[in-house]
Amino acid sequence: MPLVKEQRSSPDPAAIIDFPPEASSLAIRGLSLAYGDKTALRNLTLRVPRHRVTAFIGPSGCGKSTLLRVLNRLHDLNDEVVREGEVLLEGEDIHAPEVAVAELRRRVGMVFQSPNPFPMSIHDNVAFGLRLQGGLSKRKRDDIIEWALRSAALWDEVKDRLRASAWSLSGGQQQRLVIARTLAVGPEVLLLDEPASALDPISTLKIEELIRNLKSHLTLVLVTHNMQQAARVSDYTAFLQQGELVEYAPTDALFTNPRLARTENYITGRMA
C-alpha cells in the first residue's frame, strides 16, 4: 500500500534545482513518511550539495524537522513511523541493513532547536562523542576538543573554565557548545534544526557567522523559521508545504524571484 494516497499537486520539475551526483553529499529519492496514519512527508526527491548551506523553510508543521530526523535515522526508535523511499549519503543507502546507526550518526551530526548540553563539564560535553569511540590518547582528545571549540567560535570564552558545568553557560554559548560537541566527532554533514530560534539576536548572529565558516569543510542543512536568516546564510533554499517539496532554488533566486505563486505568497507573508 503506498504511503501517499493522493499527491496534492504534482511537483513542478522546473521549480526544483538538481545537482550532479558527484557534487552532492545527500540524495533523497521518493521519500515519504507517516506517523501512524498521519502523513508528514510526501514523496520528496532532492539532492543536497556538498560543502554548501542548504536551508529548508516552510510553515510550522510542514515536516522540516521530520525530514532532518530521517537524515540521521532518529526515527528508528519510534515504531509508529512508516517510511518509504531512500536516502543516500555519498551514494550509500543510509537505511541499508549493513549500515551501523551509530556510525551514521557520527557522519551526520545534528543540532536541535533548544540547546541540550549534558549535565557535565564543558570539557566532558565535547569529549562525550570521542569517549564513545574510544581509542584516543588524552593528549589527542584534548587537541580535538580545542579544535572543535575553536571551530565553534567558543574557545576564547571557555578556555579558562573547561571544568565548569556546561549548564553555567548562556543559551547562545550552550548552542555553540553543542555544535562543538557535534564537530568533535568529525561529521561530514551537519543538520541544524532552528538552531537560533531560542537565542537572542547577538547570539543568533554568532551562530550564523559560524554556519558560514563551517561550510568550507561541511555540508550544512539548516531548518529555519526566519526568512532573513535563510537569506543571510544559505546558498540554496527549499520550500516545503504540507510535507511536499514545492520549490528548491539558489537562495537569491528563490527570495527575489520565486517561480511559483505558493512560494511567493509564503515568502511575502513571512517577510512582511
Binding site: N72, L74, L77, A102, E103, R105, R106, G109, M110, F112, S114, N116, P117, F118, F128, G129, L132, Q133, V178, R181, T182, V185
Partner: peptide, 22 residues
C-alpha cells in the same frame, strides 16, 4: 527532557551508552 536522550544518540551513542552516561 527527550532532547538529552536525542543529543546523546545524535553523537553516535548506542541506547545503552545513552542510558548509562546521560
Amino acid at each position: 527532557p527527550d532532547q538529552q536522550r536525542e543529543g546523546a544518540l545524535a553523537l553516535g551513542a548506542t541506547r545503552l551508552e545513552m542510558l548509562s552516561r546521560v
